[in-house]
Design a protein around this nucleic acid. Structure first.
Lengths: 130, 130
DNA sequence: CCTTGACCTTCCTACAACGGGAAGGTTTAT
DNA sequence: ATAAACCTTCCCGTTGTAGGAAGGTCAAGG
């Protein structure tokens, strides 16, 4: 299987597969005589794993741990859970930040007439004229 | 006022002030004889405006618009509100994405024993073994 | 007068996780 | 023969920020 097909099968595009190889997230691929990268079903399975983890917002560093745990038959589920809970905390932290921003802006926007006149509480807030 | 003091006064550090100048978000600063950048109170005011907008999550591109609107006495508050509402939409979009990730992970983590055994629904999900 | 420390300058590098594109080699099909 | 659909490497851009090197400037203190 060439990189294009592996990309289609896994949902990770060719550019990213090469990137993951370069950065060590996936092992260096075999090459066929013409120099093309060759992928097997298990390789594609790993790429799908990575894709799913990226979709859940894990960083590449976290995914490295998760892939290792996945391959490790002697893993403890506690280790996996620890990585997941850490990520959940990060997500919650980000959500909290974004919600605070949103609340502030909504409050300001509510009091903005949004008409042809220049008076605007949003600008006033940014300008510190309160 | 040198860049260090402007940084302290505005909350934007010197490195970022130079960056904002380079990218055109703030005008090129005056220079004193020794080549140092010189800032006035209004300059610092602009930097504070930018800082506040960054803290609210606006992109530099959006801030460029907001600064222009701020300087423009003939602005309509509708224009400001439009920028703000667009940003609110972006924030909400991001929040929704993050919450979906978080919900999925929480669900998976709930069903993970988190003990010494390898069985783990989190890994199973990532591996697509469902 | 000289040194020290606290400034300032520019320039280069890195980060994370991609995407675009150039320049070129290979294979397959028509 | 030539087109198209692949593949390769290499380089650059993104966004906003941070670190550091190498060097110039300035004020205080010995």
């Amino acid at each position: 299987m060439n990189i294009g097909e592996a990309a289609r099968e896994s949902g990770v595009n060719a550019k990213m597969i090469r990137y993951y190889e370069r950065t060590g997230l996936v092992p260096v691929a075999q090459r066929s005589e013409n120099g093309y990268r060759v992928y097997s079903e298990p390789d594609v399975h790993t790429l799908r794993f990575i894709k799913r983890a990226r979709d859940l917002g894990f960083s590449v560093a976290q995914i490295e741990q998760l892939v290792q745990l996945w391959q490790d038959q002697d893993r403890s589920s506690a280790e996996v859970k620890r990585v997941a809970l850490e990520h959940i905390r990060e997500l919650q932290q980000k959500i909290t930040e974004l919600e605070a921003m949103k609340r502030t802006l909504e409050h300001l926007a509510e009091h903005c007439h949004g008409d042809h006149r220049p008076e605007c509480p949003i600008i006033d807030d940014l300008a510190g004229s309160l």
